[in-house]
């Protein structure tokens, strides 16, 4: 199963320790600080790297690949030092860049075979793995045509295929869903999830679409302006909050007043027919139902709400942006 033979710096034992460690990582470009004192550990599994445009995600990935030296601080990937062991890292790590970087004049098969061989796979193995991988990402007859004629979705699949063709232990995916329509995005997310579950390859994936990361990530790292904002498991980040979202067909103000009178904490949610109630106890749920029945209004929704990732993105601004 291991075509790389002795080339691997690390055995195939189940992963222990973190996949990625960064310590006080700083990187400046002239006057611009892209990363500032970033200290973070990323576990195995699917890690979502969240940040606005220009937050430093791509810089971090390039440092992790050993392509960009940090200005100060250090980073390790799978126990290998990024500043000195770049080649060893790139042997066991796959990378899907964000840019539209595929050469238009070669076919997907040709390109992926070539890149597989550059990762040390013997020719025959590279061909076989390429065929498997391209089939896995859903490219069939098209794979012998020049990439220049591919759609955005097909190009993204080729980029994903080349990142996993050499059976890496970790893949770094930079904005894999960029430019895809909803169906394409769903399929790409499904593929990424299967990379983690079916092939036991750890994944670090960046995106600015938070909903996606919420769906597929086990762990989330949020950076902004090169500074770590948060590093947490997705379950913790989106745990049930003590809030119930209520939507009614009519009579919002009346029902809210009724609940306030019963001692519940009611807050405006911004919607015309919705509000939220602090879940102080089971009695709150009863009060909502009874109140709706008494007023004769239709109860459309009564839902315990999870924190959405957009809320952890910049928690201190939530209050300021609430509409009243």
């Amino acid at each position: 199963m291991d075509p790389l033979g002795g080339g691997r710096a690390i055995g195939d034992a189940p992963p222990t320790g973190p996949a990625v460690v960064a310590e006080s990582l700083t990187r400046t470009f002239g006057p611009v600080t892209a990363l500032s004192q970033l200290t973070v550990e990323m576990p195995h599994g699917v890690v979502g790297l969240v940040g606005a445009n220009g937050a430093g995600k791509s810089t971090l990935i390039k440092i992790l690949l050993g392509l960009l030296p940090p200005t100060s601080g250090r980073a390790q990937v799978l126990g290998l030092d990024c500043a000195t062991e770049g080649l060893a890292i790139r042997q066991v790590v796959g990378y899907m860049p964000e840019s539209d970087c595929l050469p238009p004049d070669v076919s997907a098969t040709e390109l992926v075979v070539h890149l597989a061989r550059m990762s040390g796979l013997p020719s025959a193995v590279a061909r076989e793995r390429t065929a498997d991988t391209l089939r896995h990402v859903g490219l069939y007859e098209e794979r012998y045509r020049p990439i220049g004629g591919y759609s955005t979705g097909m190009k993204q699949r080729v980029k994903l295929a080349q990142a996993i063709v050499h059976d890496p232990r970790l893949v770094l995916l930079d904005e894999p869903t960029n430019g895809l329509d909803p169906a394409g995005r769903d399929e790409m997310l499904g593929l990424i999830q299967r990379i983690s579950t079916d092939f036991a390859i750890s994944v670090v994936v960046t995106s600015h679409l938070l909903g996606e990361l919420e769906r597929i990530s086990d762990h989330l790292v949020v950076i902004e302006d090169g500074v770590l904002q948060r590093s947490t498991s997705t379950a913790d980040a989106t745990q049930l909050s003590g809030v119930v979202l209520v939507e009614v067909t009519d009579g919002v103000a009346e029902l809210a007043a009724l609940l306030r009178a019963a001692g519940a904490q009611v807050a405006d949610d911004g919607g015309a027919h919705t509000f939220t109630v602090e879940l102080a106890g089971e009695w709150v749920l009863d009060a909502i139902q009874d109140g709706a029945a008494d007023l004769g209004v239709g109860l459309v929704r009564m839902q315990r709400r999870r924190h959405h990732l957009t809320e952890i993105f910049r928690p201190e601004q939530e209050g300021a942006h609430a509409r009243h």
Partner: peptide, 13 residues
Amino acid sequence: LAAVARLQPRSIV
């Protein structure tokens, strides 16, 4: 929804 409400639901979405 009115019929559902009569069944005393814990939650409705």
